[in-house]
Design a protein around this nucleic acid. Structure first.
Length: 359
DNA sequence: AATCCGGGGTA
DNA sequence: TACCCAGGATT
């Protein structure tokens, strides 16, 4: 049996062969030519643009990325312009996309390219892997999409598709499961034009071999699929239980400005309402709740009197007009917007002092 | 190997 | 609500 097709064979055939893989690729490519997605980062092989798209697409859906990508390329068209930007400008352009470490990594990667690689992304795969925020997937995606190398990729769509194709019973979020997926991806890879092959796999996973209810009747490679129950795959390890967190923050207001704090932990480098070490023993002025990963965070925000003296370390007063251009995480931006609007309404109505927003 | 990192979309 | 998404870094 050929090594290249160890985990892959036509359902009807006795064993895997090279021609099975070739037939799979041909059917996949036919489907891709007719049904592949038209995406802006596929219109270029500029390593910078490919790098930007891959960073934005990490753990983020295509539809969410689209508006950010075009605006980013307009604002930071190349490595030099990105490397020259401030961290605050970079985070502001990323605002709302989430996983802000990606923005800081992309910024640092651009600086490394400019200052250590003469302004061009190194052609060497090992050197690309050394850039911050670049792992196995991103390095291979750049190799395939920017440089035309025959490099396999495995991401969410391809994981699901390949797990079904080989009827993988191992959870895909384990070392063994990942190894099986990467080996399968490598065994299917063509010797040339791997970019189109990889794009085709992702599009098939994104539009046909979808989670929950795969559209098997329309699948161009159904006869190769070994899944007994496609909807039951891929298998994943059990998730951790939801963790509840409650955080106290301060709403400090001066005439036409608000006190904010540059975060050092979550949302590092972004501006948030100042954290309170301890919640005051009174009703919060505003409360909201937002989920992330396996957490649910309740924000309790307390109206606080203005402190005499200069603001604490990492804290600054910002005029209301300056807020728009500040990088702020969405939950804090929403909270601040609503509190300011409530104060506005209150000052016109001249009612009781500090009406709480909490019902 | 386990855990962390946000937010938007969807069943 | 729970799950999903063009993953990577840290411990």
């Amino acid at each position: 049996m050929p090594v290249e097709a160890k985990h892959f064979s036509a359902k009807s055939g006795p064993a895997a062969t090279r021609s099975d893989a070739a037939e799979f690729r041909a059917a996949l490519r036919r489907w891709f030519r007719a049904h592949g997605r038209d995406l802006p980062w596929r219109k270029t092989t500029d390593p910078y643009a490919i790098l930007v798209s891959e960073f934005m697409l990490q753990q983020t859906q295509v539809a969410t990325v689209l508006p950010y990508y075009s605006e980013w390329i307009r604002r930071f068209p190349d490595f030099a312009s990105l490397a020259a930007a401030t961290e605050s400008e970079v985070l502001h352009a990323w605002q709302g996309l989430g996983y802000y470490a990606r923005a800081r990594n992309l910024h640092a990667a651009a600086k490394a390219v400019v200052h250590q690689h003469g302004g061009k992304l190194p052609r060497n795969a090992h050197a690309i892997r050394q850039l911050p925020g670049v792992g196995r997937y991103t390095a291979n995606a750049i190799a395939a999409f920017a440089f035309g190398d025959s490099a396999p990729i495995v991401e969410a769509n391809i994981s699901r598709l390949l797990a079904r194709l080989i009827n993988l019973r191992e959870p895909i979020d384990t070392v063994a499961g990942q190894a099986a997926l990467w080996e399968t991806a490598a065994s299917l890879l063509p010797s040339r034009d791997a970019a189109a092959h990889n794009s085709a796999l992702m599009d098939l996973g994104a539009t046909v071999c979808i989670s929950r209810r795969p559209r098997c009747p329309t699948c161009p490679v159904q006869k190769f699929c070994q899944a007994a129950d496609p909807a039951a795959l891929p298998i994943k390890k059990a998730r951790l239980g939801l963790k509840l967190l409650t955080e106290a923050h301060a709403f400090r207001r001066r005439k036409e400005s608000v006190l904010l704090e540059k975060s050092e932990n979550r949302w590092r480098g972004m501006w948030i309402l100042p954290r309170l070490a301890q919640a005051p023993g009174r009703q919060p002025f505003y409360r909201s709740s937002f989920p992330f990963t396996n957490h649910r965070i309740t924000l309790n925000i307390f109206a606080c009197a203005e402190d005499p003296g200069p603001p604490a370390e990492r804290q600054r007063w910002f005029s209301l007009t300056a807020l728009e251009s500040l990088p702020m995480p969405s939950p804090h931006r929403r909270a601040l917007r609503q509190m300011l609007a409530a104060e506005e309404a209150h000052s016109f109505a001249k009612q009781r002092p500090h009406p709480s927003l909490i019902r």
